[in-house]
């Protein structure tokens, strides 16, 4: 890919990733976030986090199926860091708008409410990934260790989806599309490995 094309695509990715936040910030300033702005902020940031995590998980299987798209890897770090950014805003909105900055309220929630425990777990799993996203960290850890560590993205995404299921009322199926997408993306990995092994096997007559 030409350097100029890459710059254009990266700029577009930045704009797309910042868009939900810009819309929220604009709405918050002008009080146009709808009837329940607190819930709107929390839902939008949570949804965007899951959306970005799902996209990052799609990059590897897509590259393996379509080698011509292998340049997509250049976008994964950016998307992953934006997922962390939205998760952080989601967390801060909880701390300020739901728990009212009360440490006691937060400890109560974490101890008593499994959907919050699961949400906090998902967030804490993303922290080491964000911290080791620099080239320096990759060099320091070595590619193999870095890859192993970043498998935590799978666990964090699954935790995020469980958090979503536990948050909605029993009988409400809103988290279903994410659940299906992530299940497919996670199963795609062993399936693609198996296909590759079969191809690599020498043909015996």
């Amino acid at each position: 890919m030409k350097k100029s094309t890459l710059i254009v695509l990266k700029s577009l990715t930045w704009i797309a990733c910042l868009w939900p936040f810009a819309v929220l910030a604009w709405g918050a300033v002008n009080n146009t976030l709808g009837a329940d702005p607190t819930a709107h902020i929390e839902l939008t940031t949570g949804y965007t986090t899951l959306m970005l995590l799902t996209i990052t998980l799609a990059i590897t299987p897509v590259r393996r199926l379509l080698p011509s798209l292998s340049w997509l890897i250049k976008f994964r770090r950016l998307l992953g860091l934006f997922a962390f950014f939205y998760a952080t805003v989601h967390m801060l909105a909880y701390v300020g708008l739901y728990a009212g900055f009360s440490v006691q309220a937060m400890l109560d929630d974490i101890a008593k409410r499994r959907f919050i425990t699961m949400g906090v777990t998902a967030y804490l799993l993303l922290v080491p990934l964000a911290l080791t996203s620099t080239n320096w960290a990759i060099r320091k850890l070595g590619g193999k260790n870095w890859n192993r560590l970043h498998k935590l993205a799978y666990v964090a995404t699954v935790c995020g989806i469980i958090h979503y299921w536990w948050q909605v009322k029993t009988g409400v199926l809103l988290p279903l599309p994410f659940t299906v997408a992530v299940t497919v993306l996670l199963l795609a990995r062993p399936v693609l490995n198996w296909r590759q092994r079969r191809k690599a096997r020498p043909v015996t007559v």
Partner: peptide, 22 residues
């Protein structure tokens, strides 16, 4: 009496800005 998934001590009044709802 809390809902198992959230506290019922406070509520969000609909239609107010996000910082004034609680």
């Amino acid at each position: 009496v809390d809902h198992p998934r959230w506290s019922q001590k406070t509520e969000r009044r609909i239609g107010l800005p996000f910082y004034a709802q609680r």
